[in-house]
Design a protein around this nucleic acid. Structure first.
Lengths: 116, 116
DNA sequence: ATTATATATGAATAATTGTTCAAATGTCAA
DNA sequence: TTGACATTTGAACAATTATTCATATATAAT
């Protein structure tokens, strides 16, 4: 062969040049992976799962998950920051509810993936 | 009030008793959160993103992501273990491709969530 | 066989993160 | 105001993890 590049590189440079500019920008990339990071914790999955059935306050969630209120509150904050849940104070209690219709669908899809 | 329980506990015990048994079992819970953990890394999102366009070998992915082949290989192993991609050896190269149709849909849904 | 290339792997390091514990805040009732 | 309760918060600790570096394996070409 006369081309030293193709001699040592078996890579398809054409497809590299085509795909590289179509990659997501850094910011979108971090937003995406941050979203999945939030979902990637069993405590938070449980919280979302429970909240699918009803609005619930911290004490109730703590009883359902059988975890300390502190741990639950910490994780609720993560979900709140990610805008997956919203909170509403009523008296001494703070009630949480789902804030995004996508989440239920995404969990269902993930279920289909892991259940096979 | 005559009931000391309801006096100090503002919790709705009925809904706790209803929701608690409907919670997912530990194993399913871990499978679910593990799946999202795999998605919760920007390098792995990039790999899946690129592989949506075409089957690619490690060197090509390394060029597209602008990362060392070692780092790419390590992350491909994670995706392979999670059965999100499959690999096929051809000559000196190992070609990777997507192994699950759910993933593209899930990423699209996540995009809709983060893009608002 | 030797050399070059492609990929994989193991150990090490740095960074991130979930829970616990103690303490702070906020709300209601007496 | 004082006391009890619901929730939040900050610091600390343990555990997990992504990348780097060096090395190992495997394939192809000379």
């Amino acid at each position: 062969m006369d081309n030293p590049k193709t001699d040592t590189e078996a890579l398809n440079q054409e497809i590299i040049n085509k795909i590289k500019p179509s990659m997501p920008k850094k910011e979108l990339l971090y937003d995406l992976s941050d979203f999945f990071k939030v979902m990637g914790d069993s405590t938070r999955i449980q919280l979302l799962w429970a909240l699918e059935e009803s609005e619930l306050c911290v004490g109730e969630l703590s009883a359902i998950l059988d975890m300390t209120k502190s741990a639950v509150s910490h994780q609720l904050k993560v979900l709140r920051t990610a805008k997956l849940v919203r909170s509403q104070k009523r008296g001494k209690n703070v009630y949480y509810s789902l804030n995004d219709e996508h989440v239920q669908t995404i969990v269902k899809m993930a279920l289909e993936h892991v259940c096979e």
